[in-house]
Nucleic acid binder design. Sequence first.
DNA 1: CAAATTTTGGACTAGCAAGTCCAGAAAAAC
DNA 2: GTTTTTCTGGACTTGCTAGTCCAAAATTTG
Lengths: 194, 194
Amino acid sequence: MKLTPKGQATRQRIIEGAAEYLRSNDPGAVTLDDVRAVTHTSKGQLFHYFPDGKEELLLAVARHEAGRVLTDQEPHLSALDTWESWSAWRGTLLARYRAQGRYCPLGALMDQVSSTPGAASVVSELLGQWQGRVSTGVVTMQGNGLVSTDLDADRIAGAFVAGIQGGVQVLRATGSTDQLEALLDLMIDYLRRP
Amino acid sequence: MKLTPKGQATRQRIIEGAAEYLRSNDPGAVTLDDVRAVTHTSKGQLFHYFPDGKEELLLAVARHEAGRVLTDQEPHLSALDTWESWSAWRGTLLARYRAQGRYCPLGALMDQVSSTPGAASVVSELLGQWQGRVSTGVVTMQGNGLVSTDLDADRIAGAFVAGIQGGVQVLRATGSTDQLEALLDLMIDYLRRP
DNA sequence: CAAATTTTGGACTAGCAAGTCCAGAAAAAC
DNA sequence: GTTTTTCTGGACTTGCTAGTCCAAAATTTG
């Protein structure tokens, strides 16, 4: 499918509009008409840019949101080389998820398209990259002699990512960030202890 | 609503049948007709026992599943008083979730009814009880002098519960239990270290 | 046993939401 | 400048699914 600049813009408008909509509305029941309304588009356009319909559109939105997850953690995530940077990272995460509250756009999208194979791969890739970044951070710290080299960096990183995931999950269910905070503190403390 | 023994049995059959169905099928698209088929009931029965329809039914199933979550962790969860019992608990959790694989019945139900207020409270209550049990375990260990009394038992317990949640989440998305295992090991190791 | 109540079956309705289709406007290509 | 392609609007179709309704069967009550 060839897209002119105008077409690209429209497509992008649809994705961003849908993402925005999902960020502030109950995700369980998004309809194409909702997307249409919020993006000022017609059915024709929707299916012109997303021939496979709703699923393709939601996947595109999921990719868009997944992309934000990691960049929102910058610049700390890419420079986890001192205890201060870990602390700053922790703070950024907490701030982000506190602001987000119960609505987790990516989580919401996953609920929607959990059946489709594509959705799992979007999340898998995100989690993999995330874990990789954290792992790099741990290795850096080990290189600087700040973290014991007995620890398996990748395994630790996996625990971090899963833990954050769980904290967010709890946040979605209960509205509290206490557990997320406790988890981050516990894990960072674990690293610090020799 | 008065229920004769027969009525109770039917109602229970519907809940259990639906739960069973959700345990092995894509949850994103459960219809009342699916439930009807699997439980050999009629529309009339469904709405007779769940006057508020689908939502009420799914909530009942969610409660049913939530009840299983903790009992499946027994007898260990109620007797976290030695390192062996913690280890056994860890093993039980891993085994359970490995067996469950990508399908998390409770998670699936949450996706379905995430909008309804009742669903959040079902999960909140479950998480609260869970955290309480773990907290009791930590306190017991502290009483036995096996865990430092510097640690805040409830906070640790919150981290545990959230962490497990996250591990399961990762399992749902990627099919791997590595992160869940890493998390449990990390947290238990954290407790062991003086 | 007769009356009242609960349970069951299933046809029917209503409404929504995804996806189709096509014609006309706008833009690009040459 | 005209021909070809892309873009847009919106009416229409299709199918599905939650929920309604009622009558008949079973069960309980007295």
